[in-house]
Design a protein around this nucleic acid. Structure first.
Length: 280
DNA sequence: CGGATTTGACCGCG
DNA sequence: CGCGGTCAAATCCG
């Protein structure tokens, strides 16, 4: 099952490369488009290699593929690995989650890279596409950067006093990649869009009053938190509000997928790569 | 007409 | 003093 999921992830990445190549072939007359497509194709092939290597290194057993949408928290300690047990469709499987623990001082600030899905999306980049609504309040030329940095704050700052902010900076070397730096979490009532939440009737329940998500474990234990903005199909950020509390689990898509943590809680945001369970 | 964006001015920090 | 972040008036847009 896991090897199937991993193979599916690899196939998906290869299909994407194929599609991009097709797009390139159709647009050979347009230099700008070619320039934009080439690094995306290279990146897709690179990812495929990483997935294949990771797959092989684990003898066909599951391990989360590394991703082009790598989360890059500001401050990292040595990455740790932990095991979780997931029970799905009656069978219990074991899968590895690669965790990175961020020290507490960066609790309200983190960075990720976002790759835009289409070059046609233009210069505004991933601005509004993370499940929250943002209001742009500034733009600044940054010394040594090709592209200006855009400043956004949550639309609900005035109405709810929501402190969430983000900065979006287009990458110098790959125009299809945006560096997004988030500052503070949302305290407004707005929820990530429906498709970005955990599955219906699944492991996640949202508490609208608190803008929170509850992760219910098989044993009845419940962790309360809030889903951080979605960074892509394969990553989600879990930020414990206190030890032993984790942010809601993303990715149970259309199935009930109880998650059981094997180990103690950690203080600080925890990034989890475990996309193989819900990747197409 | 109201909300969002643009953009030059302003401010604080190193 | 320079740079990055924010403010706010002007402008845009649905």
């Amino acid at each position: 099952m896991e090897s199937n999921a991993c193979a599916a992830a690899l196939l998906a990445e290869l299909s994407q490369a194929k599609e991009l190549l097709k797009e390139l072939e159709l647009n050979l007359h347009c230099l700008d488009l070619c320039k934009a497509l080439t690094p995306r194709i290279a990146s897709s092939i690179h990812n495929s290699f990483l997935m294949a290597e990771s797959f092989e290194a684990n003898n066909g057993h599951d391990r989360p593929p590394s991703s082009s949408l790598a989360l890059r928290p500001r401050t990292l300690s040595t990455p740790k690995r932990r095991y979780v047990r997931t029970s799905h469709a009656g069978s219990t499987v074991r899968m590895v989650m690669k965790l990175r623990i961020i020290c507490r001082k960066s609790l309200y600030s983190w960075r990720c890279q976002v790759r835009v899905s289409s070059v046609a999306r233009g210069v505004e980049g991933p601005g509004e596409d993370d499940g929250f609504t943002w209001r742009k309040y500034g733009q600044k030329e940054i010394l040594g950067a090709k592209y200006p940095r855009a400043y956004f704050r949550c639309t609900h700052r005035t109405s709810h006093g929501c402190p969430a902010k983000k900065q979006v900076q287009r990458s110098d070397d790959d125009p299809s990649v945006y560096d997004v730096t988030y500052h503070a979490n949302h305290t407004c009532l707005e929820q990530p869009r429906e498709e970005e939440k955990g599955g219906a009737g699944g492991a996640i329940q949202h508490d609208l009053g608190q803008s929170a998500a509850a992760l219910k474990l098989e044993g009845g234990e419940e962790f309360v938190g809030q889903i951080a903005p979605s960074f892509g199909p394969m990553e989600e950020q879990f930020v414990p509000v206190s030890p032993y509390q984790f942010w809601g689990f993303h990715g149970a898509e259309n199935s009930s997928l109880p998650i059981e943590f094997d180990g103690d809680g950690e203080v600080g945001p925890v990034n989890i790569w475990a996309g193989v369970e819900w990747m197409q």
